[in-house]
Amino acid sequence: MSTTVSARPRPRGTPGGVQRRRERLTAFGMVSPAVVLLLCFLVVPVALAFGLAFTSARLVSPTPAHFVGLENFRLLFHDPVFARSLRNTLVFAAVVVPVQAGFGLALALLVNTKVRGTTFFRTVYFVPVVTSMVVVSLVWLFLYQKTGLVNHLIHSFTFGLVTGPDWLNNPRTSLPAIIFMSVWQGVGFHMVIWLSGLQTIPVELHEAAAIDGADRWARFRSVTWPGLRPTRAFVLITITIDAFRLFTQVNVMTQGGPVDSTSTVVYQAVHTGYDQQQTAYASAISLVFFVIVLAVSLIQRFLTREKD
């Protein structure tokens, strides 16, 4: 490459030309490790998801994979487990996104004060976030047992009136139980994001509104909420994508059960693609998943765009 450059009758030798060439070469050298790694471990696998979905590839197979057209997708759209997994994932996202965003904002408003001990409370609310989802799932697996701590608490707070169900072994309560736990774990993360948004709003705006006689609610509506616009878009998109990725909780706590009531798209992809070694079918699931996530984030980006 350097020979073709120097062969050209360019002003080589002039300090400017040499410097520019050196700058380019250094720049290429400095970006190339990241670019090569991203190509190898992101671009190629994504392309493979597209390619393998139309073949008969298996993880370990004596016969080479061959092209099967849309066969995997035909199977997929007639697969009742996939329909159930998709529905569970959508339900999970539909509940978690507004609840976690709203709860997170409430917490942020609560700790965005100068009351003594605020740092302590903020730290405590954030502790579940730095605890791994595997550990959180394990502990809650124990808490959710039929005679577990959660049911003991329910029993004593209702003075013995309500007896809690066997949360994770009942198809009607298993998904709600996972939703509750997921919000408990993740809400501190979004509290901090909201908090950083709140702190970009100038104090003077609040003071001006207070002088104009605005009460708390009016101040929230006219100052805080509009000021959080960029944060809102970010929170919405990250919670949604995270919700769609639901896997660890399910894998640790229920393995998709009982009767597929907690199976999710990612869980099914891992289960078929890895446990059953059906790489092609899992790639088809991944591809559908990818398209859904992309569509949802584009729609959200459109809805929360800056209106100029």
Binding site: P45, V270, S286, F289
Partner: peptide
């Protein structure tokens, strides 16, 4: 998660 399986 969308490309973890093909990546294996």
């Amino acid at each position: 998660e969308t490309f973890a399986l093909p990546m294996v």
